[in-house]
Simulated assay, not measured.
Amino acid sequence: MKEIKIGSVLTKEITVTDDLLACHVGSGIVNVYATPMMIALMENTACECLNPFLDEGETSVGVMMNTTHDAATPAGMKVSVTAEITAVDRKKVSFSIIAKDEKDVIGKASHDRFVVVKEKFETKAQSKLQ
């Protein structure tokens, strides 16, 4: 793992499509951007923000996500998520994340990820099957 720069930021943008709506993913019956899909985009943005600091064979895994979903977003509207590295404690990296649509801040999160060696991590998980 390379030295991780606090304050590093990454923004990703998507357009809300029908397959991202609560009524399609099973998190409700309304035709608005689903909370689990917003959280997935938040986690993916944080993951990609951290990737440049990882060595070959390393990856990161999410271990905590504390999220609010504060405003509804209809299909067709763009959503952007910005993740910022706020703290590093050995292999634990903390993020502040904000999601916005074209009108409002729609969600906020604090998120922690741990840097792991991918092969070792997956081997340990697979050992549960034995």
Results as ranks from 00 to 15, higher is better:
residue 116 V to N: 08
residue 21 L to D: 05
residue 22 A to C: 08
residue 25 V to W: 09
residue 2 K to E: 08
residue 34 A to E: 00
residue 93 V to F: 00
residue 79 V to W: 01
residue 121 F to T: 06
residue 125 A to I: 14
residue 130 Q to H: 15
residue 44 N to W: 03
residue 126 Q to G: 13
residue 110 S to P: 02
residue 109 A to V: 00
residue 58 E to S: 04
residue 102 E to G: 14
residue 108 K to Q: 11
residue 55 D to M: 04
residue 55 D to R: 10
residue 103 K to I: 03
residue 110 S to F: 08
residue 129 L to G: 11
residue 27 S to E: 13
residue 62 G to Q: 02
residue 28 G to D: 04
residue 22 A to M: 06
residue 14 I to F: 10
residue 20 L to M: 12
residue 6 I to Q: 06
residue 50 L to H: 06
residue 15 T to D: 10
residue 40 A to Y: 00
residue 75 A to H: 07
residue 39 I to A: 03
residue 26 G to E: 13
residue 26 G to L: 05
residue 51 N to A: 04
residue 47 C to I: 03
residue 41 L to K: 04
residue 2 K to I: 09
residue 67 T to D: 03
residue 124 K to H: 09
residue 51 N to P: 05
residue 50 L to M: 05
residue 83 A to T: 04
residue 76 G to M: 05
residue 86 T to G: 00
residue 24 H to Y: 12
residue 124 K to L: 13
residue 21 L to E: 06
residue 90 R to H: 15
residue 33 Y to W: 12
residue 97 I to A: 02
residue 1 M to P: 08
residue 13 E to C: 14
residue 104 D to C: 14
residue 27 S to R: 10
residue 117 V to Q: 14
residue 97 I to R: 00
residue 62 G to D: 00
residue 22 A to G: 07
residue 107 G to R: 01
residue 31 N to S: 15
residue 61 V to T: 10
residue 100 K to G: 07
residue 32 V to S: 13
residue 34 A to S: 06
residue 68 T to C: 01
residue 127 S to V: 07
residue 111 H to A: 06
residue 5 K to R: 15
residue 86 T to E: 06
residue 53 F to H: 09
residue 126 Q to C: 06
residue 82 T to F: 02
residue 48 E to P: 02
residue 99 A to T: 10
residue 97 I to G: 00
residue 17 T to F: 09
residue 23 C to Y: 14
residue 94 S to Y: 02
residue 60 S to E: 01
residue 113 R to Q: 03
residue 7 G to P: 06
residue 68 T to R: 08
residue 117 V to P: 03
residue 91 K to R: 15
residue 64 M to H: 13
residue 96 S to V: 12
residue 126 Q to D: 13
residue 42 M to S: 05
residue 19 D to F: 03
residue 101 D to H: 10
residue 36 P to S: 08
residue 84 E to Y: 01
residue 40 A to G: 02
residue 59 T to V: 15
residue 53 F to C: 06
residue 35 T to F: 06
residue 63 V to G: 09
residue 128 K to W: 13
residue 125 A to G: 12
residue 13 E to L: 09
residue 21 L to M: 11
residue 63 V to Q: 00
residue 24 H to R: 14
residue 7 G to M: 12
residue 53 F to A: 10
residue 82 T to R: 01
residue 94 S to F: 08
residue 107 G to H: 05
residue 53 F to G: 02
residue 52 P to R: 07
residue 25 V to Q: 10
residue 46 A to N: 01
residue 98 I to K: 13
residue 95 F to C: 03
residue 20 L to V: 13
residue 69 H to K: 05
residue 108 K to T: 06
residue 85 I to E: 00
residue 56 E to Y: 14
residue 96 S to T: 15
residue 57 G to T: 05
residue 14 I to G: 03
residue 38 M to H: 05
residue 103 K to P: 07
residue 117 V to T: 12
residue 24 H to P: 09
residue 41 L to I: 03
residue 97 I to K: 00
residue 29 I to K: 10
residue 14 I to S: 13
residue 13 E to P: 07
residue 29 I to G: 15
residue 44 N to Q: 14
residue 17 T to G: 08
residue 88 V to E: 14
residue 15 T to G: 15
residue 112 D to V: 11
residue 53 F to Y: 08
residue 84 E to D: 03
residue 42 M to V: 11
residue 130 Q to F: 09
residue 109 A to W: 03
